[in-house]
Amino acid sequence: MTATVASVHPETASARSLTIDVPGWRGNIAGQHVDVRLTAEDGYQAVRSYSLASSGPGATLQLAVDRLPDGEVSPYLVDDVLPGDQLEIRGPLGGWFVWEPSLAGSVQLIAGGSGIVPLMAMIRSRAASASTSPFRLLYSVRNPDDVFFRAELETPTPGLEVTWAYTRATPTGWPRPTGRVTGDDLSAHCFPASENPAVFVCGPTGFVEAVANALVLLGHDPARVKTERFGGA
């Protein structure tokens, strides 16, 4: 399907969100992704997967892309694409890492970096619905400047609690020292295993591995922990 870039918005120094119009799009569930295909003038093509930050029936979608400095596709989407440019997308893809407002029960979201994107779709889907499921988000970023969707997450909708974890630098006076998310962070800030929450973990592969393993050690049922690995080490 042909997508036309409607607007671009910087999210962080290395990331931006793209709003795209996709005539004929039949809607998607929160958590799904698309394959984006780019074609150069000479016919050369590359395809990468990107999660949708948006959900529902509309044909205007939002992506948010973080630039990998030595990457092929992400620097183009972050630095070069302008409103009016066209790309091709295929989707919606994925039927496992998804949340729908009809699902009852507590939901624990755990994001590393750009892994916030599909979880943001879940947060927005909940806010737009009558769902009263309690949500918690634990969001790990390198620095305070690396937060995606800052305005929405700093003033969360009722029923959503957000906890921040910084790995390289914190805001001044921040109580938690810098460092990767540990089992202690998970037990302090996440719904406990005894509540049997649905857990969604998304981010770079190493982050997802570490968090998912720690959740299982804390007693979470592996069948309740859904993961989406974005790649990398």
Binding site: T39, A40, E41, Y44, Q45, A46, D80, L82, D85, Q86
Partner: peptide, 13 residues
Amino acid sequence: MAVISRGFGSRRR
């Protein structure tokens, strides 16, 4: 016929 993405392809593998 594929849609051309303007200016894409400079960092190709």
